[in-house]
Amino acid sequence: MRLTLTTWNINSVRLRIDLVAKFLKAQRPDILCLQETKCPDDAFPLKRFKRLGYEHIALNGQKGYHGVAVISKLPFVTTDIRTFCDIIDSRHISVSVKTDENAPPLVLHNFYVPAGGDIPDPAVNPKFKHKLSFLDEMKACEPLHPSGDQRHILVGDLNVAPHEHDVWSHKQLLKVVSHTPVECEKLLAVLRAGNWVDVARERIPLDQKVYTWWSYRAADWTVGDRGRRLDHIWVSEALKDRVVDFKVLRDARSWERPSDHVPVTMTMEL
């Protein structure tokens, strides 16, 4: 079975539902994970997704902020929501799907990690302190430690660009939130604790630039190409050799009224 999965911080699903529909009609992934839906569950555009052929939808939303969703052609066996830092703010949802009667379920975690504000000092910036604590709790979270033949995937806007060439200028961004050494180390600690495989960096050498986000502050995002790789797809060791393709749809950043993030897609042979 071939399975295609996309993660995308959509920055308001209702505002950009036409862009999502455009993407789904063109790319037809089996599963779409959204972050920053900014939409309470009872206002989510369910009918539009179902008309597009996506019958199975798991939601963890809230009005105006955050929010994550999994939109799928495949039915869910289970769904679950976890809270971190004792704050109920719609930053996680997980589902499991059955892809093969002879294999364990495929477990998918969809995250929106706190952005962390502008000042990289937890002593004076509560948002940055929250982000560091959130990453620490992810590291300690037992369900994020797949082992053996467990087929797990972790995706989302993790709001950290952990490697030198995940940002347009390593030197200039060392003191900028999303690429500070403490954030990078904490995210990589989550990766190591769960023995995860970072699909992008498994397939694209570390000395090559990869970005998934470009700031709205730039009048033209293509000038200087000042991006960061904030959106991630990780797989457990059991799935490492099943990945056959990985793509970042850079062109989506130039769509009309776009998100500042673009879709990131992985294809597996299961």
Results as ranks from 00 to 15, higher is better:
4 T>G: 04
231 D>L: 00
179 H>M: 14
19 L>V: 10
94 S>F: 05
145 H>G: 08
125 N>I: 06
169 S>L: 14
86 D>A: 11
59 L>N: 11
70 V>Y: 05
229 R>I: 01
140 A>Q: 03
89 D>A: 02
119 I>P: 07
195 N>R: 10
139 K>F: 04
110 N>K: 06
52 L>D: 11
174 L>T: 14
179 H>A: 15
88 I>A: 09
196 W>P: 02
139 K>H: 05
233 I>E: 06
124 V>Y: 01
27 Q>C: 09
62 Q>M: 14
16 R>E: 08
187 L>Q: 01
183 E>D: 13
76 F>R: 06
261 H>R: 01
254 S>T: 15
262 V>I: 01
170 H>G: 14
162 P>Q: 07
78 T>H: 08
220 D>C: 06
224 G>L: 08
156 G>H: 07
13 V>S: 03
93 I>L: 15
96 S>P: 02
77 V>T: 12
76 F>M: 13
130 H>V: 03
182 V>D: 15
217 R>L: 14
89 D>C: 02
251 D>E: 13
205 P>L: 08
199 V>Y: 01
258 P>V: 01
124 V>R: 00
119 I>H: 11
2 R>Y: 10
23 F>V: 05
158 L>S: 02
82 R>T: 11
69 A>G: 09
41 D>R: 02
90 S>W: 02
251 D>P: 00
246 F>L: 00
134 F>S: 03
71 I>K: 02
244 V>N: 02
147 S>D: 12
